[in-house]
Nucleic acid binder design. Sequence first.
DNA 1: TTACAAATAGGTCAACCGTACAATTTTTAA
DNA 2: TTAAAAATTGTACGGTTGACCTATTTGTAA
Lengths: 208, 208
Amino acid sequence: MTSANKAKNGVYNKGKNRINDILDAAHELLIDAGYHNFSMRKVADAAGIKLGNLQYYFPSKSVLVSAMLDKTIQVYLDEFDEIRTHGSPEEQFQNLLKHVITDLTKRETTQFFPELWSLSNHEEEMTVHMDQMYAKYRSTLGDIITEMNPALSPKQVEKLALFISASVEGHTVFIGHNKPWTKEVDNIIKMATQSFSWLVEHGDIPKR
Amino acid sequence: MTSANKAKNGVYNKGKNRINDILDAAHELLIDAGYHNFSMRKVADAAGIKLGNLQYYFPSKSVLVSAMLDKTIQVYLDEFDEIRTHGSPEEQFQNLLKHVITDLTKRETTQFFPELWSLSNHEEEMTVHMDQMYAKYRSTLGDIITEMNPALSPKQVEKLALFISASVEGHTVFIGHNKPWTKEVDNIIKMATQSFSWLVEHGDIPKR
DNA sequence: TTACAAATAGGTCAACCGTACAATTTTTAA
DNA sequence: TTAAAAATTGTACGGTTGACCTATTTGTAA
């Protein structure tokens, strides 16, 4: 059992809060400095503790980064469930697109995801976290699509969910926070809703 | 005048080849190690020269990275012009989508762009290179769209080019080289062609 | 052939890095 | 109150990094 696990299962409130503080500081640092400027010492500074103390909770950098990714990603996962609780399938579809695209323009999202994409290309371990999140994303989207057009086969639904979710992610780099086209968010939402709805209802999607 | 400039304008073939070797080595290193593992010493090693010699051509890391980005991006820029030389607007549209999406699956492209996106979020200087490339991308795409549907206003064309190009870029993370959905490339091309063609021909795009 | 510029190598520096570990203080449970 | 556990600090180590600067070698043009 590692020190971090000991701390997580510990009974002291101080330790639990510390872990949250550290994870938040790490997240913030990743966002505004990028992973190439991300170091244990900077995280410790940002969290207001000493390097030795940080290592008591997270014995290695990779353990820290992994935990930080987990926590950040969990926030997005929770939001997908919420979408499914209100409205018709068509409304859920529109709400999901609007929600995700609007979220792209938040500073934290605009900066976080490119780091995640880059990281997953070079650190095997990070790929798992990312894939798991996008699988849930596509699964939620797929459920909605199936209800919108029950004639579609599971394979067709899968393809549509992949195409739509991937397309939406691409806008991060262009309409995200402080990007040149931020003001076009509403238009992007309109175009996404139109074209992707049409694709779900009238598209000729390969059956397998 | 910097050493790098001197070298670039120099008359020795040795020096010119060296610069190309260095830029290629830098590109390769960025691609398979990521920017967080990108160092002057590793570039020198990969290029088969000593650190001191590398610094003779590129006096600082940022100058090197900047030159490397420039060279890499130029390759993509040249390809856009090619597309415009053959076929009807509709064919050009399909060819462009097919070309860009197919390109996404190349190892170099899959790995390079997330690095570029991340870098542009944290290093002001890199943003310029990226924006310039995507501006050219959208401009080419916009010209084709205008010919496909002359009834569209310039503003509408601009929005469509933005939406389509951004959507396509998003697939890098999902159908790129060694990604979980690489085998779906052909289906993605089909869906992109269908939905984006429909959007250009029948979409209700805000006029301003 | 010789003089000069280009190209290459080598060394040094302060700063930063991840990791390990011992010493100390603080908190909690008995 | 006291002993054990948890939390925190401080320090040290071997490496790496970007930037500088000084030889030394190589190539070329006069």
